[in-house]
Amino acid sequence: MNKLHLSEDEQDCLQELINVAMGQASDQLARYLDSFVYLKVPSIESVDADSLATTLDQQQAAMAVVSQGFFGYEGIRGEALLVYQDEDSERLADLLGYEPDELSKDEQLIDISSILTTTFLNVFASQIENQISYSAPKLLPSRANSLSEHLEQLTFNWDLALKVNINYQVTDYSFNCNMVLLIPETAINNIKVVLNRILEEL
């Protein structure tokens, strides 16, 4: 996570906050979904702008991406991308207990992504005594390069991407999706301030 220029303590603190947030979000989500799904505490890595495009581009052919902006106090803002493999996204919709014809696959995917993102970030925000608002989630068009195009057209320059690998386990199935948090530099600095406040309190 060196791209962040975080000290070892700051990095440890951030990882711990994310672990706790994802743990609680998973639990809430599992309850909401009648315990059909549970998620393991995720692994986290930071990715810089260049390598994000290349990492994700490799999988691009068969990928579904849902994006959702978030913004809180103290300049903490960014955009969350949920990246699914196409076949997983279809399976996910089935597994989440929606009626088959009830709504489109796209809508199911957007729904579940939004729930994941907002539950996770809400818990994260409450730990750092912040409150986060969200823009409506959007499914990126499913064609080659749509992710790269999207990254170019963001309304802010992001300097860091936190890639959170989420592992779903549902009885017989297990599959992965990546949550990528794109965070601009000003927000990183603000997060650092918060991290240091927490560390000082210890």
């Binding site: 706790v20 743990g23 609680q24 599992a30 549970y38 505490v41």
Partner: peptide, 25 residues
């Protein structure tokens, strides 16, 4: 003391002799 607070995990560790399962933070 864990961030992973899934019910399955709780019963697993209590079965392995832990006294309590407490959630982080």
């Amino acid at each position: 003391i864990s961030a992973d607070i899934q019910p399955e995990m709780q019963s697993k560790v209590l079965g392995l002799g832990a006294k309590e399962f407490l959630r982080k933070p």
